[in-house]
Design a protein around this nucleic acid. Structure first.
Lengths: 132, 132, 132, 132
DNA sequence: GTGGTCTAGACCACC
DNA sequence: GTGGTCTAGACCACG
């Protein structure tokens, strides 16, 4: 495995998005430091068994967001990330997900106590969101 | 407001899906009892400012899932829901959302303690997942 | 029960059609002789728990087909049926249904022998087409 | 002919339903194996001279029933069918049709012997349910 | 008045 | 190239 990224071809979530979200988290979560070379588009597409085009789109999106830099003929590298950006992004990404979860829970009439139980269960499972 | 359903036209989530998820929750959450007549597709489409067809698709999907019953020339009604189904759906829907949240949090290296804070914040906000 | 007619409100088949087919069979099958008075529209609608309009449509259709006659202020009666018509209709109605059954069976790769088994089973069940 | 499917625009049965039933039978009858790519919705709509939307509805219904899998930008494929499901569907589909046929026959006072004759005739005609 | 079907056409997203 | 969503509008069928 070139990068710790999991994809589910049956999911309704587009492939490129699954990959993008996870790669972004690797960078902004600090697991890939500034300057680290990313796999070539071709390598990563083989590794994840998807089309080159899909990876190219991921890299392009992340380059547009300033998270990676492509050097012609050399490869692609993790860009410098402002500490502020890192923290802001982390906050936003996680906050949104928790709001969604609470939103859903409220629709199904869960109490705050219920939600804490759901959270603990999910933490124990290590957060594997795929039910299989 | 015919039904307590909020839509966000700017969201990436398809309109029909936003509506479907919320209507499903109203039924499986017990807020709409068996036999309750739903608004006609035309009424609801006006109320939510979308096409009749979008609502029809929602109703049709839910009928395929056995949650509502529609009789031509008569209207659409909440079907009988097995208590088992109700509980199973509730569990599943909420569990998935919490797993996703934890999943994301872990990618950003949050501790269990961090997650509890995020949860409490979201609960205080009443779970409004829309950041605006 | 005013007439031996069964309806299923959950069926996809329109109410008026369920009733029409059965009433037609009663007449052409000879179970209702010429001149027999039919129940009034209102009586029958109460008996079958459906709208007056539904019965009116049935009676109108059958009158158009010449199977019943309505006398103003007197009631509705079974019309005279030519023996030829009776036989022709019987043949046609049953033939179509058997062709459809064989059609379906062939699509699912049943042999002639299989079909005879299906037929015998159905005969033993007395032909109750409702699986409940 | 992309797929051996016949439609009758004059039939009372909705177009999408005619197509759906036949495609379903092709899959559950084993004539289309797992993983087989189906024609694109545009191709099939041209082939059957109907709207793209009609085909999309067919594909969507079958996807909801788990019989096919569709991947955006890639195409639509026959899903894995449990042998159990296959047999269950086959049984159900054929049984229902034979019950209906017997039901009708009984209304017209056919004997079991009559029915066997009707069956044999229909088999000889190869089951073509269209009387033309 | 209800819902059901089919249509055309536009625009988007994905690979 | 694929499928996905949303739209408008016409016409039918049902009660």
């Amino acid at each position: 495995m070139l990068l710790p990224i999991q994809t589910s071809p049956t999911s309704a979530e587009p492939l490129y998005h699954q990959i993008k979200v996870q790669l972004k988290a690797l960078i902004l979560g600090g697991k890939l430091a500034e300057g680290t070379p990313l796999p070539s588009i071709r390598e990563l597409s083989l590794d994840l068994s998807c089309s080159v085009i899909t990876i190219r789109r991921v890299y392009q999106d992340l380059e547009n967001e300033g998270l990676i830099r492509t050097k012609q003929g050399t490869g692609t590298f993790v860009a410098r990330v402002q500490e502020d950006d890192r923290e802001r992004h982390r906050l936003e990404a996680v906050t949104v997900k928790f709001r969604e979860a609470v939103d859903t829970a409220l629709r199904y009439k869960c109490s705050a106590e219920d939600m804490r139980r759901f959270l603990n269960e999910a933490i124990e499972l290590g957060g594997r969101s795929d039910p299989e």
